[in-house]
Design a protein around this nucleic acid. Structure first.
Lengths: 145, 145
DNA sequence: CTTGATCTAGATCGGTTCGGTCGAGATTTC
DNA sequence: GAAATCTCGACCGAACCGATCTAGATCAAG
């Protein structure tokens, strides 16, 4: 399961992607638009900023904007920033591999084999979905809005 | 991520699958063979039993045995028993669907769409891996043992 | 029928994570 | 310099996790 925090992050990023990248949007607006508790959203945006996914502008007319073009930000990256590796087990992770300390033989471990299959397919799917794709989908499904 | 408990459960089930289904294996043996803390394993086996994945025999020469043929028990089922639904979000789960309370429009939700893709592919992979397959794999990779 | 091995059940526990809030500080604009 | 904004760290309660302890129920064998 994704954490609630990660779901918030996805929604917030989608909200940012809805407007031109140039104009910064303020925390309060994002919080309202994406239905995320304001103070909690601050934490989330800070983490996203540290990893370069968003950029902040301080001061009076400040706010947050995407750090890159929407087509260059995918779901997998957002989820990894907030929740960590996608894999179901550290021994099946590519970005954060760690051997199971109680695993007797990794080579013949049938469990690991299955988990690696899962992580590969999950990563592939989530990396295919960019913010730009998501926005396009939304427009296609609800053209009147 | 899978919980440690789920990984223990998978290992324990694999251990049970290694011997003929007729002869019950005792908790102590399974604990040692699968490297699972004994008392914790008791809880795990109880849960697996409640869901019919294993069967217990009491008394002197008692123990646990698989509830069905190894080919009829897949990884997905074991994981679901211990950790709950496979999906990354309740709104993307088939076995435990629940609407996101803060979702404005499920139909156009691009996040949900991606998460459903992930859950489908994950379920497919894990349902393809049965205990019997896992044992066969292991034998194939390490024929000398 | 007693003994001892087993399963069953639940209370408990220390630690960590999760979701969320508060308050103060730093930075920029008007 | 006042006002609006982001920044940052401390904090909180509840849930969860991994694991252990204790006590009881059940059965088999001697």
């Amino acid at each position: 399961m994704l954490s609630q925090k990660a779901r918030y992050a996805l929604r917030a990023m989608l909200h940012l992607a809805a407007k031109p990248i140039a104009e910064p949007q303020q925390i309060a607006d994002i919080a309202e638009g994406a239905a995320v508790p304001r103070k909690f959203l601050e934490q989330i945006l800070l983490e996203l900023k540290r990893r370069g996914l968003v950029h902040s502008v301080r001061g009076r007319h400040g706010g947050y904007q995407l750090g890159r073009e929407p087509k260059d930000i995918d779901f997998a990256e957002i989820i990894r920033v907030i929740d960590g590796p996608l894999a179901l087990s550290p021994c099946a992770s590519r970005t954060a591999y760690r051997r199971c300390d109680d695993c007797t033989d990794e080579a013949t471990c049938a469990i690991r084999k299955a988990l690696i299959d899962v992580r590969n397919s999950t990563a592939k799917i989530l990396e295919q979905h960019s913010l730009a794709d998501a926005m396009a989908d939304r427009r296609k499904m609800k053209p009147a809005a």
